[in-house]
């Protein structure tokens, strides 16, 4: 009986004892849980197996003597045996080298999982579903969709109640504020509100037809700005008729392909602002062309509904 077996038994006993104590000592112990029981059994098995494997190899080191033929070469007296590499090991080693070549050159580059590919598939699936679900959406439901898009994209500048947050952005509950009308008359405008470039001249290009085409005056600008901002009513109607109506129409509702509606919002007008952005008295609005067509149409319907 070698002393090493005795040590093995002592260590196994000690570790099993330690396992027993730590299980009992922990809150609830085994707790009637099959997983806990299996874990403890596995721990016990590991202890026993480990100790016996260690004993085996320590014994082997104690009693084994080297056998076999030495290789010719040696390095400062340190040589090696001329034994063959185990066959199975050699097959696995060479096989993994071949696999690595294939994987680096072909497997990974050509068959790798593509995050972007998955993204494209998911977007295509979503878009198809969106198209199908909302193809025929109209009326109040379109306005509701517009409101949800508005709350996600527009409220940061125009405010929750679309009032423009104390003049920081356009108040969408009315078509115009007087300062915006005044700014456009004084500076002209090229905001592509019709969907294409069709500039409106600045004040030097605006003549009053009722006064022998005299250039518009400061007093007239103030009057007509108030008139337009007031929803096309009150004083200033005569200036509007003389200066503005030839392009914007007698009722201010615009003329197709010539000038936009300045009496009220129309969905098409809003869509053009979303597509091209806008710059005026209040500040600049960036374009929101990344909304899809249905969403733009919905925002148009929502904004139009606000001032009705």
């Amino acid at each position: 009986m070698n002393k090493i077996y005795l040590w093995g038994v002592v260590i196994v006993a000690a570790m099993l004892g330690f396992t027993y104590v730590s299980v009992l000592g922990s809150k609830g112990g085994l707790n009637g849980d099959i997983i806990n029981l299996l874990t403890v059994l596995a721990a016990a098995a590991l202890v026993v197996i480990t100790v016996f494997v260690v004993i085996k190899y320590v014994r082997q080191m104690q009693v084994d003597t080297a056998t076999g033929e030495l290789a010719e070469e040696n390095w400062d007296g340190i040589g090696e045996y001329n034994n063959n590499v185990p066959f199975g090991w050699a097959v696995i080693f060479l096989g993994s080298m071949v696999w690595a070549m294939w994987y680096f050159l072909v497997g990974y580059p050509l068959n790798a999982f593509s995050q972007i590919g998955q993204y494209n598939e998911e977007v295509a699936a979503h878009d198809a579903k969106f198209e199908k679900k909302y193809a025929a959406i109209t009326g109040d439901r379109l306005i509701e969709m517009g409101e949800s898009v508005y709350l996600a994209e527009c409220k940061v500048c125009h405010g929750l109640s679309a009032d423009g947050i104390d003049g920081k952005a356009a108040n969408l509950n009315q078509r115009f504020e007087a300062r915006s009308v005044k700014y456009v008359i004084e500076h002209g405008s090229n905001n592509q509100l019709l969907g294409f470039e069709n500039p409106m001249p600045d004040r030097n290009g605006l003549m009053n037809a009722n006064k022998d085409y005299a250039p518009i005056t400061d007093a007239e600008i103030d009057a007509v700005s108030a008139y337009v901002a007031n929803g096309m009513s009150g004083a200033g109607g005569d200036v509007f008729a003389g200066v503005c109506s030839s392009c914007h129409g007698a009722d201010g509702k615009g003329i197709d392909g010539v000038a936009p509606d300045i009496a009220e919002f129309t969905p098409a007008l809003v869509v053009d602002v979303l597509k091209h952005g806008k710059k005026g008295a209040i500040g600049a609005m960036p374009q929101f062309d990344r909304l899809n067509e249905k969403q733009k149409e919905a925002v148009g319907a929502y904004v139009t509904s606000l001032s009705k």
């Binding site: 994209e153 500048c157 920081k168 500040g283 600049a284 960036p286 990344r290």
Partner: peptide, 11 residues
Amino acid sequence: GNYRSTDWHDY
């Protein structure tokens, strides 16, 4: 830069 403007950043 695509969806906020100079004056908005200012406020």
